[in-house]
Every structure is written in C-alpha cells, then in structure tokens.
Design a protein around this nucleic acid. Structure first.
Length: 853
DNA sequence: GCAAGGTC
C-alpha cells in the first residue's frame, strides 16, 4: 500500500489536523525524539487506498550561522561578516529533527505539507523537503509533494484544503532565507563591533553585550523617543474658572482653559459676582461601550501588562503552560474572530459548575449575544478557555491570567455596556458651563470583565431647562501642563504592532531583550524608562545614521523581501543589494563611531579611571585596575591592555605569587565561600601558553612542568563526577580550607581541615592510581590515632584519611568501585593514564619555546 | 558573547 507523509508546524496541530482528516480514527504513537507524535490511519488519497502518517516539526528545522572561524569574536573583523560564508545548521540539535523526519519518511511515496500558511511556514516546507529528500523519491516533484493551504482549523476548511492541494511556494520560502541571512550578518556585525569598541574603553557600562538588531533597536528607539519628549517638555501655565453650584457639584468650563492670565481674569470677573446659573438646556442620549473582540496574542500581552502587571514575556510563558496543560487554546494567534462552527455555548456550559464563574456563565447563556466579527488572519482561532480550573489549581499569576482569559471570553459573548449620558448646559452671564452625568443602564460585559467597570458620576438632582441654580463658589485656578509619562509596555506593544516590528511571537522577546541588556528598566505601572546606556546608544545612532534606529527601517527591508516572495525580483540580487547597503552603513558607522563615543564619554568613565588598583602587570610591573562591573576585567593603563576575568565570583590577589611564564601576578578566583576556586594568571587566562590549554583556563589546567601551581604539580586524580576533568589540589584558601576541585566541572571535595600543609606526592596510589597526598598537622592537634603529625596516603584508599575527607557520595562510590575492582580484576580499572597524574604534554619544551618566541 | 524567526 502506498504511504502519504503529512507534516504540520507543531505537534498540537498535527494532532488536531489528523483527528479531523481521519474522522477521529487515527492511532497515535510517540516519535523517537520525544517531542513529536505520529498519527496513522488508512484512507483514500487521489483515488487510491493509502496509509496516512501525520506528524510535525517544532518550528524551523534549520537555522543560519556563519561558517567556521567567523563564529569567533576574536578570529575575524566584524566587517567580514558581510561577505563570509554562511551555512544552515540544525535549529535544535537535541530534537534530531532531520533524522526524525528522514526515518518517518522512509517508505513513503507522497509528502503533504501542512505548515502554517505564512512565509515562515512556506520556508519550513522546504526545510522538511530537504530533510526527507533521501527517503522519498523525487520529493521536489509536484506529483510527489503537495501543499495544503488552510485558513482555519475547522473541519470544513481542512477538508477543503485536503481536496485542493497545491505546490509550496519557493519564492516565499526564499524571501525568508534572505531575511535570515540579512538579519544575521547585520545584527552580528554591529553587535560585535560596538560591544568590543565600548567595552575596550569604559569600565562602568554595566552590560556584557551591547547589541544591535533590526527589531530590538527600533523597539528601544520608541522608549528613548518618549524619554526625549519628556526631557524637552516645557511646562506652561494656564488658568480656568471653576464654578461650584449648590447642591455641591463642579461644572466644566466650555473654554476649558486659557493660557493668558489677564484674559482668564476678565472671564473670572464676569462670573465671580453672579449668584445664579441658568440651565440653558438638558440633553440626554444613550451611549454604549462595545464588548471586546475575541482575544488574540497581542491583546493578551497588552492586557496582562496594563491590567495584571505581568510583563509580556512572562505572560506568554504562563499562557504556554496553560495551553500545554489543556486549560486554554493555542495562545499564539492574530485572529480576533471565532471560527464559524466554534461551539461558543459549549465553552460557557463548561463553566456552569464553577464556583467562580457558574452564575455568570448561566446568565450569559440566557442572554446570549453573538460575538462581534473580528479579523480572520488564517492562523489559529482566538485564545479561549478549554478546561475548567479553580483557584487552587495554579499559583497566583497563573490563576490571574487564566481568570482573565475566562472573563474575557465570557465578555465577548455578553451585551455591550449601555449608559445614559446627560449634558446640562448652564449660562452664567453669557459664559457656558456644563455638567455631564452618566448613568449606567446595563453593565453588559463589564459584569464579568469587572476591571472595566463603569465609573458612575450621577448628578444628585437632575435639572430642567430654565432652572435657576444657586452658585456656591467661583475660583480662578492656576495649573500647569505636565509632561507625558514614560511609555507603558502596553503602549510599546501597540507601537511595535503598528510599525510591523517583530511578530506576535517575537514582540515579547524583543522587549525582554532591551530590559535584559540593561537599555531600559521596568518602572511602576510597567512603564519603560531608558537607562543611560539605552539613551546614549539611540542618540548615538541618531548622530551617525538615524536610519539605524528608525521604525520604518524594518518595513522598508520587508518591502524589498516581499519582491522576492512575489516572484518579481531575484533572490540573489535583492539580498546582495541589501547586504551592500548595510555594509556601507556599517563602514560609515565604524568611521564615525567617535560621534557616539563623545556621548559615552560624558556618561561613563574610561577604563583608566575606573576600578581599583589590583595586581601587577607582567610587562610594565605597574599595578593594573580591577573593574568589577560586568564583564569583570583587568586593565593596565600603562600598556593600554585589557584582560578578561572569569565570569561571576571574585578575583583576589594570590599571595603576590607570580606566573613563571610572564611575570604577571597570580590571582585566586573564587565563587563564594563554599564554591569553586582556582588560581590563575590573567595573561595566560587570555593567551593560553600551551596548545592543550584553552582560553579561559586557570593554573589548574596549565601543563607547565615545574610551576608549583600547575596541573602537573597539583593534579591528583580523574574527576569523580565528570568525564573530562581532573581533581586538582586547591591551596588558594589554605591553610584554613584545603580542597580538591575539578578543573572542568563544579565538583569539590573539602578535606584535611586545620592541616598546616597539604601537598601532592611524587608517588601514586598502588590501589587506585590517584596521586598520594602528604598532610602535615600541628603536633598538638593531629587527628591521627598514632599521634603522628605527618602522613602520606591516598585520599580515596587510606583508612586514616577517611574521617578527614568530606562525606561525598561520589567519593564513597569511587571507594566501593576501587575495592570491587581489586577483588575482581586485580587493580582498579586498569591504570589508564588519566587516573593518576595526568600526562604532561608530549612536547612541552617545544611549546614553551614557541611561547617565548 | 552576536539577529530574528519558528516552537518545546
């Protein structure tokens, strides 16, 4: 029997599409990658009986990256990133997606692609075809591979798509390839250049990465634009006449306010001596506030931020969790209209038994309103609740978001809010004042969406035309115009949506980025206030090349890319043109960076003047400065060199010891009292002296043959927790604390408390191959039963050491293993070199010689 | 250590 492989963009969609197409008959099994399932059934495809297999990918199968050395920050000039090679790589290696697809496709004759119907989906179609090209013959043929085009996940739509299969659109897919390549080259080139440039000059930037991106930078731009408005705002004084009538009620002046005091005074003088206001007219009309459209992602994020105080990133994480647990429908959609056959009442029914919502759900069913017609974007149905939950099922924020989604859903099926608005016009010697009073007629959807409840302001006594109302008080009030506030997250989301910056799925990522990178902070009310770094960056772009931060930049690029999608321009030509433009922009940016730098200069302190005097430079013997702000560095202002330091923790001067290779003073890095620690040479850490030592290593990885701090001198045994590392004696906090620490993982073994001295012996243990240790105690407090103050033994095998070694599960295991090993196989696991002292590098003298040259 | 876009 012929076999048809069908592929959707995500596991959940594969399940629901298979269910529709098989009329519920599909049998499901889990795929070997643990993430995707395969749904199988027999049916008819193009008039023949076939077996169907429906599975999915998880988003993109592949992603783009630079080739080889261009991934390294130190091995190439950022400008090379505009011309160097790029290659496709597996997007998520642990999912083994190409392998999974290839194996499921084996033996299949046809491929039907059910990826989301947007350009990204079209691009993934071709990624899937690539992945199965060795499994399905002629996969590029339009007689083998088909594309289903659907706009809603409804039986009608899906079956229609199945009966009208097409071929995937290569032009649309290509336009995505172009976008990927352009974003990669431009983003990484600018990011690397400006990060290295500014980190090499300033010590208090408080940022480990100064990134640029075609979406994140305009996003930051919005926040800084508002900041600039606030800064440039000049308050203006204005005056208004405030009349209070009896019974007490303030009236609104029809002129609202006046910016010249003298003129305001004239009106005030007219009104102030009057005793009565005459009712000129009373008009009344019914107004309404519409119930909401069905909920989509952007609105969910906006409301979560402004109403619940939950940021978009976290909101989406919670929504994702609610979705995978079945409480709500798929939370990423732009659509704001329910599918035609959606069981609106069924969902309400589900809530009838709920303590929280039961009463509302019944009321709404009795007064059921058809939802408003929104937009169908052809992606997924709006976000709706799909399972009843109660308060105890979740933590507080999860409950609040779930509650919001339930109430919003009920709101969309409720009546509009209705109120009566009555405007009373008063005349006071020719001046017009009004009072507007609103009276609620029907709370409508705000009965469930209580946060939108109607603020009442009823007039205590209604008036009729011709009434003469006593005036209680007349005042001339002086006030000032105020600046706008910082942008709220909700405002920012709206701006991004309006300018097409990011997508519903990536908007929270960009906002999160600019906060994580320390360009903006989230203030009370989730308002986004730019930091000095954020402001200086945006102002710098504006000085050098304003287009870099303009929100229109993204859409201009998208426009070009759309030419590819429409087939009216050649992929290569458009891409080359766009890359050329950005390369020129980049080069212009680099040559004019001093314009941005002059702004940095004002706000940040140069490396030379930041940090504290710390340890000596091996080249000039002068003290270098220790800059503790992220990323921690040592800076020698005399040599104008900067040395990076291990991430986190603290690097203190290590007993004024020096590296025998370069004369730099050694430092002891430690990550808290009980954490890892090791000595290192700041020069070797950045410029490893031996081939078998990687950048970012301490002395505990150094193969120097004679230095007393090196791995060669202090290595004891292979690590008991990881495969790669070696346990090295760590003397940096001796004699208070002695410990063995792995030079690769976090494994630490504390030992020999209060010993005067611990050192690594020349000999190795006969039983397990570990290097022996010599331990010396004060005569007065030796722990050994025979009264000796000095012993040599094995940390794993010597009985008299056992009580002096921290109880460590892995140590116990190793002891057991080595005992067992002895009885069954003679001696340990067989004296491999890594067990004892690690082999010194083969040609160490040659390496040393090379280093000194 | 880098972008933006999918999704887990």
């Amino acid at each position: 029997m012929k076999c048809v492989l069908m592929v959707a963009e995500k596991p959940s969609l594969a399940a629901s599409l298979a269910n529709i197409l098989s009329n519920g008959k599909a049998i499901t099994r889990k795929g070997f990658n643990g993430a995707c399932s395969i749904h199988e059934w027999n049916g008819v495809f193009r008039d023949i009986n076939v077996k169907f297999k429906f599975t999915s990918v998880c988003g993109h199968v592949s992603g783009l990256d630079f080739v080889g050395k261009y991934n390294s920050w130190n091995l190439c000039d950022p400008v090379d990133l505009f011309s160097c090679g790029v290659e496709k790589k597996e997007a998520t290696p642990k999912l083994k997606m190409p392998q999974f697809l290839a194996s499921e496709a084996r033996g299949c004759d046809f491929l039907v692609l059910w990826l989301d119907c947007d350009k990204e989906g079209e691009n993934i179609c071709f990624e899937v075809m690539d992945a199965v090209s060795n499994s399905i013959r002629n996969v590029r043929s339009s007689q083998v591979t088909y594309r289903a085009k659907f706009s809603a996940i409804t039986e009608k739509d899906i079956k229609h798509a199945f009966n009208n299969l097409q071929y995937p659109n290569e032009n649309e897919a290509k336009s995505v390839d172009a976008r990927q390549e352009l974003d990669l080259r431009v983003g990484c080139a600018f990011t690397r250049f400006q990060t290295k440039f500014f980190q090499g000059r300033y010590g208090d930037l408080d940022s480990s990465l100064i990134s640029f991106g075609p979406c994140q930078t305009p996003t930051l731009g919005f926040c800084v634009a508002r900041h600039d408005e606030i800064q440039q705002f000049k308050p203006e004084s204005f005056w208004y006449v405030q009349v209070t009538i009896d019974p007490e009620q303030k009236l609104e002046w029809q002129r609202v306010r006046i910016f010249e005091k003298e003129i305001a005074m004239i009106f005030f003088n007219i009104v102030k001596d009057q005793k009565e206001a005459i009712v000129e007219s009373v008009t009344s009309k019914e107004n309404f506030r519409s119930r909401p459209l069905a909920l989509n992602t952007v609105e969910l994020m906006r409301s979560a931020s402004s109403g619940l105080g939950i940021g978009p990133h976290v909101a989406m994480q919670i929504a994702e969790k609610l979705y995978t647990q079945g409480y709500i429908s798929y939370p990423r959609t732009e659509t704001t209209t329910y599918p035609t056959n959606f069981d609106l009442r069924g969902v309400l029914k589900m809530f009838e038994s709920s303590n929280e919502y039961g009463e509302d759900a019944k009321n709404i069913q009795n007064n059921f309103c058809q939802p408003r017609k929104g937009e169908d974007c052809g992606d997924h149905p709006p976000i709706t609740p799909s399972k009843l939950a109660s308060r105890n099922d979740f933590d507080n924020d999860t409950w609040r978001l779930y509650d919001f989604i339930v109430r919003y859903y009920m709101g969309t099926l409720s009546k509009d809010l209705k109120y009566r608005s009555t405007v009373t016009r008063f005349l006071i010697d020719g001046e017009v004042f009004t009072n507007t009073s609103n009276v609620l007629i029907d709370a409508g959807f705000t009965k469930v969406m209580t946060w939108q409840a109607f603020g009442k302001n009823e007039l205590t006594t209604p008036f009729s035309k011709g009434d003469r109302v006593p005036i209680k008080d007349v005042k001339l009030i002086e006030s000032q115009t105020g600046p706008p506030s910082y942008l709220t997250e909700a405002d920012l989301i709206s701006l991004m949506e309006k300018h097409g910056i990011g997508t519903d799925a990536s908007i929270p990522v960009h906002i999160n980025n600019i906060t994580q990178r320390n360009y903006v902070t989230v203030e009370a009310g989730r308002r986004l206030k730019p930091t000095t770094l954020g402001i200086v960056l945006v102002h710098g772009y504006q000085k050098i090349d304003p287009e870099l931060v303009l929100p229109t930049m993204r859409s201009a690029v998208e426009k070009q890319l759309n030419l590819i999608a429409q087939g009216s321009a050649d992929f290569r030509a458009v891409l080359r043109h766009a890359i050329d433009i950005f390369r020129l922009k980049f080069q212009y940016f680099v040559t004019n960076i001093s314009n941005m730098d002059s702004l940095f200069e004002v706000s940040f302190s140069s490396l030379a003047e930041s940090g504290k005097s710390h340890s000596r430079c091996g080249k000039c013997r002068r003290y270098m400065k220790y800059i503790q702000q992220k990323p921690a560095r040592l800076h020698c202002s005399h040599c104008d060199e900067t040395y990076s330091l291990p991430v986190g923790g603290i690097a203190r001067v290590y007993r004024e010891l020096k590296c025998p290779l370069d004369d730099f003073e050694l430092l002891a890095w430690s990550n808290g009292n009980k954490g890892r620690s090791f000595p290192f040479c700041p020069y070797c850490y950045n410029n490893p002296p031996f081939n078998d030592m990687t950048r970012g290593s301490g002395c505990n990885s150094c193969t120097h043959p004679t230095c007393q701090h090196s791995l060669s001198s202090l290595g004891v045994a292979q690590c008991i927790e990881c495969d790669k590392g070696i346990l090295v004696l760590d003397c940096t906090s001796s004699p208070k604390n002695w410990k063995l620490g792995c030079n690769s993982c976090d494994c630490i073994i504390n030992c020999f408390e209060d010993a005067l001295k611990v050192s690594v012996d020349e000999e190795a243990c006969n039983d397990c191959g570990a290097q022996l240790l010599q331990v010396l105690y004060k005569q007065t407090n030796t722990p050994f039963s025979d009264g000796d103050d000095k012993k040599t033994g094995c940390i794993f095998c010597s009985n008299e050491f056992m009580p002096l070694i921290e109880k460590h599960k892995a140590v116990e295991n190793r002891r057991l293993n080595s005992t067992r090993g002895r009885s069954s196989r003679g001696r340990g696991k067989g004296g491999r070199s890594h067990r004892g002292r690690p082999k010194p590098p083969k040609d160490k003298m040659a390496q040393l010689a090379a280093y000194f040259v």
